[in-house]
C-alpha cells in the first residue's frame, strides 16, 4: 500500500505526519525509551509488578502533612492516643499501597477492534479489560492521553470492553501512543498507573470536502451498462404479457388485433457510472484527497456506482459500504505508508 512512499510532496507538506507520537508531550524521550524496553508493545498485556508504577498523589502528600501535624500535636500534648491516631492513619497509608497496587495487578488488556474516522472526528478503539475472577476491581480508568478517560467496570463482571476515543488529527494509520491505565482506589492517596502499548493502529481518512461531481470524460458513456431495464421512462420494446405485469403497460390496441396480450417494455436511462481521478481534482494533495473522499461519500449516499484512480492504484467501479471503505482506506493511506 505504499507505492507512493517516494512521493516528493509528502516531504514538502509540513502538515503531513511522520511517525505517530501520541504522548511525548507528557513524558520525556528518555522515559519513553526506558518504557519501550520495560513494557514492549504487545496486543495483549497483563499487568504485574513489572509494569505497574505507584506513587503518592497530591492528596497523599497532604495526608502525610496531616500525619506530621498529628505527630507534632502528640509530642507537644504528650497524648498517647493522638500518637495512636497518627500511627493508625500512617499504617492505613501503607496498607493502601497494597490495595492500590492490587487494583491494577492481574488485569489483562487487549485491543478488540477499532473504527476508522475522518480527520477532525474521533477514532474509536475498543479495549477489553479482564480481571482475575476472585477479586472485584473498582475505580480503574483508562484512556489515551489525547482522548477522554473511561471507567472500566470490573466490579460485577470480570470482563469489560471500554470504548476509547482519540481525536483523529492526521490522515494515515497512526498509533495513538501508549494507553494510560490508572487507579486511585481505595483512598485516593496513591496513584497506581501504567503506560501500555497495545500496538493499536487507528486509520484516519482525509477530512471530506463535498462538491459536485467533476465532469465525466466522454468515453465514460459507453463504459458499462447505460440502461436500467426496470426503469419506467422510455419505451424500448414489446413482449408477451406475464402475470404480474402492470395493467398500465398493457398494449390494449394490439389486444384488439390479436389474441396475444402484449405489454410495452420501459426502461430508464441510468446515470453513467462515475470515475474519480485523484490527479484531475483541483488543489494540493491533501485537498485533492479530501475532495475525493467527499465525492466517494456523496456517490455512496446517492447509491451511484463509482471507480477511483488514486495514484497508481485503480479501484474498479462498485457500490456500497465495503467499496467506500476500500476507497477511503486508500485515500487515508495515500502517500503516508
Amino acid at each position: 500500500m505504499s507505492a507512493a512512499s517516494a512521493n516528493p510532496q509528502q516531504d514538502a507538506n509540513p502538515s503531513l505526519p511522520g511517525a505517530a507520537t501520541g504522548t511525548t508531550s507528557r513524558r520525556s524521550k528518555r522515559f519513553d525509551r526506558w518504557l519501550e524496553a520495560r513494557i514492549p508493545p504487545s496486543a495483549s498485556i497483563t499487568l504485574s509488578q513489572r509494569n505497574i508504577f505507584i506513587f503518592p498523589t497530591r492528596t497523599g502528600f497532604a495526608y502525610s502533612g496531616l500525619l506530621l501535624l498529628l505527630i507534632l500535636g502528640a509530642i507537644n500534648y504528650q497524648a498517647s492516643l493522638v500518637y495512636g491516631m497518627a500511627f493508625l492513619l500512617g499504617s492505613l497509608f501503607l496498607i493502601t499501597i497494597l490495595y492500590t497496587f492490587r487494583n491494577l495487578s492481574g488485569l489483562t488488556f487487549e485491543l478488540v477492534s477499532h473504527r476508522p474516522a475522518f480527520v477532525g472526528e474521533n477514532l474509536e478503539f475498543s479495549v477489553r479489560v479482564v480481571r482475575p475472577k476472585q477479586h472485584p476491581r473498582e475505580g480503574i480508568q483508562l484512556g489515551w492521553p489525547a482522548g477522554d478517560k473511561q471507567w472500566a467496570e470490573l466490579f460485577e463482571t470480570s470482563t469489560d470492553v471500554a470504548r476509547l476515543y482519540v481525536p483523529a488529527e492526521r490522515r494515515g494509520l497512526h498509533n495513538p501512543g501508549r494507553l494510560l491505565v490508572e487507579t486511585f482506589f481505595p483512598l485516593g492517596l496513591l496513584r497506581a498507573w501504567t503506560w501500555i502499548d497495545l500496538d493499536a493502529r487507528g486509520l484516519t481518512y482525509p477530512k471530506p470536502i463535498f462538491d459536485d461531481y467533476p465532469a465525466q470524460g466522454s468515453g465514460n458513456r459507453t463504459d458499462g451498462s447505460l440502461i436500467d431495464p426496470a426503469g419506467s421512462e422510455d419505451f424500448t420494446d414489446l413482449r408477451v404479457y406475464q402475470p404480474g405485469d402492470p395493467l398500465k403497460h398493457v398494449l390494449w390496441r394490439s389486444y384488439a388485433k390479436s389474441d396475444d396480450l402484449m405489454v410495452k417494455n420501459y426502461a430508464s436511462y441510468v446515470e453513467p457510472r462515475l470515475w474519480f481521478d485523484l490527479e484531475s481534482l483541483p488543489g494540493g494533495l491533501e485537498e485533492r484527497l479530501s475532495r475525493m473522499a467527499g465525492l466517494a461519500l456523496k456517490a455512496v449516499r446517492e447509491d451511484r456506482e463509482f471507480g477511483a484512480r488514486i495514484g497508481p492504484r485503480v479501484i474498479a467501479p462498485a457500490k456500497g459500504q465495503q467499496h467506500l471503505d476500500q476507497v477511503l482506506r486508500e485515500l487515508g493511506l495515500y502517500g503516508v505508508h
Binding site: Y83, G84, F87, L88, G90, S91, L92, L94, I95, T96, Y99, P186, L187
Partner: peptide
Amino acid sequence: WLIAQAIPLTVVLF
C-alpha cells in the same frame, strides 16, 4: 477491612 489490616502495624509503631 483496611483499618483492621492497619492495626498490627499501628501496634508496632506505637
